[in-house]
Amino acid sequence: MSTQDFRLTPNQEIILTALQFHRRYGLEILQAIEESGGKHIGFNSLYPNLKKLEQKGFVKSEWGEEAPEEHTGARRKYYRITGTGTEALETKQLLLTSIANWTPEPKGA
């Protein structure tokens, strides 16, 4: 039995969904969510959540090939979903499906 904690907050779920089929950098994740009509997430929520997802092992990060930004010298980082991350999303989907399918047991049964 797996002891991995698959719990996701709503924002983490959306971020993980944005990474499901593509590796993306932070701003791209925001654009993907916003332009698909999803919930608005700010920078202030995105990066702390990405770090938490990385700590949990749901995403992996890697440096981009782009040159560092000319003024700040900051590099771009790409995030990619891991197998555990995919499993966490599937678990969430299963939970939603089982909630949708739940019916009360008939009385006196």
Binding site: G26, F43, K51, S61, T72, R76
Partner: peptide, 13 residues
């Protein structure tokens, strides 16, 4: 190392 991509995306945005 952990947070420079945040700064990069802020300047890009």
């Amino acid at each position: 190392q952990t947070y420079q991509d945040w700064l990069r995306d802020i300047t890009t945005s």
